Computed example of a mutant assay.
Amino acid sequence: MAKTQRRTRKTWWRTYGPPILLISPSVILVGIFVYGLIAANTYTSMRDAHTVAQYNGARETEFVWFENYKYLFGNSDFQHSLTNLLLFTVAFLLGTLVLGFLWAWLLERPIKGEGFFRSVFLFPMAVSFIASGVVWKWLLNSGTGEQAKGLNRLFHMLGLSFLENSWTANLTFGVLAVALPAIWQLAGYVMALFLAGFRGISDDLREAGRVDGASEWQLYRHIIFPQLSAVALSAVIIIGHMAMKSFDLIMAVTDQRTYSTKVPAIDMYNFMTSGDYSNAAAVGTILLVIVAILVVPYLIHDAKQRR
């Protein structure tokens, strides 16, 4: 019996030992630096460490559970940040999806210079958000008339003064102006996703539809669009989570003090730099939950599809 057990353990170790040894460093590192830090952040968000002295232990802190979250959700400034995040995410998503799909649809048919146009559309993605943000900060200058710069200056010179506006200075919709450079930068990436989806559809399916008498619209509606649903869902998840955690582009176009373009990530930075670590951690946890609400259903759906 003992020999049988030893033989079984050896067999098990030979089968599962090498894979376990291979993945264990990654599992340990991810456990410490991802999930461990998430747990530490959540713990900090439930304490009343609102000054540097409290965080360093010079003054006592208490475990206050969800009081910091109640404060944030009841704060009008944070409510404004959440509204801005919603507006920015919707504009970013719709803009990149529509432009990306249209560009992919145009390039899906073989045309001369396709490689050139693909490069032109994808080029903005190679530019960092900080670099493009500096340029767009000038383009979105809110000056009008003779003091106008950037796009407002162009409209003024063309006699289209009615198109001049305050851009990022608008208190209600200023964050939508920041969505413009974000759309410009990521629409090419979504185009690449859709173009890969178009190219992955068999020509036999298209020909079969045409033989059956389907019009071009019916061909797209019943054959091509359903085939692109997985690509569209992937694009929504990728762009959506990027919009949720947007920080560097907004900081480059405006700054952390601009109320009109403030989002939760900016609030987290402001809390942290002022020593209010508990509220900063609470904002981080809220963002994590929002992203999880967006991503986890996709992961579940993807797992079911694979099965």
Rank of each mutant, 00 (worst) to 15 (best):
Y277L: 14
S215H: 04
Q305P: 04
F73M: 11
S76G: 12
S142C: 00
D302Q: 15
A126D: 00
F117Q: 00
A265C: 05
T44R: 12
N41C: 05
S119F: 03
V291W: 05
I266E: 05
V98H: 01
I223P: 03
G145F: 14
A292C: 05
A169G: 01
L140K: 01
V90H: 04
L140C: 03
Q305R: 14
L107V: 06
D77K: 15
S278R: 04
V134T: 06
G200K: 10
Y259P: 03
V190S: 01
G200H: 07
M251N: 14
A40Q: 12
L87M: 14
T42C: 04
G284F: 08
W105T: 09
S166E: 13
G57L: 01
T254V: 03
E67Q: 15
K10F: 12
N165H: 06
M244L: 15
G174H: 01
F155H: 09
K3Y: 14
M157E: 10
G100L: 06
V127A: 01
E114D: 08
N68D: 07
G213A: 08
L139F: 02
V175I: 15
T8F: 14
K3C: 02
F155E: 07
A208F: 07
L186D: 06
A252L: 05
L195N: 00
P110Y: 10
L299R: 09
G209M: 10
G143V: 13
W217M: 09
T42A: 15
V98F: 01
Q79H: 07
D77A: 11
P18M: 11
D248F: 07
F78P: 12
E207P: 06
L228V: 06
A292K: 02
M125Y: 08
T172E: 12
S215P: 06
I32Q: 05
K3S: 13
A104C: 10
I250D: 04
L97Y: 01
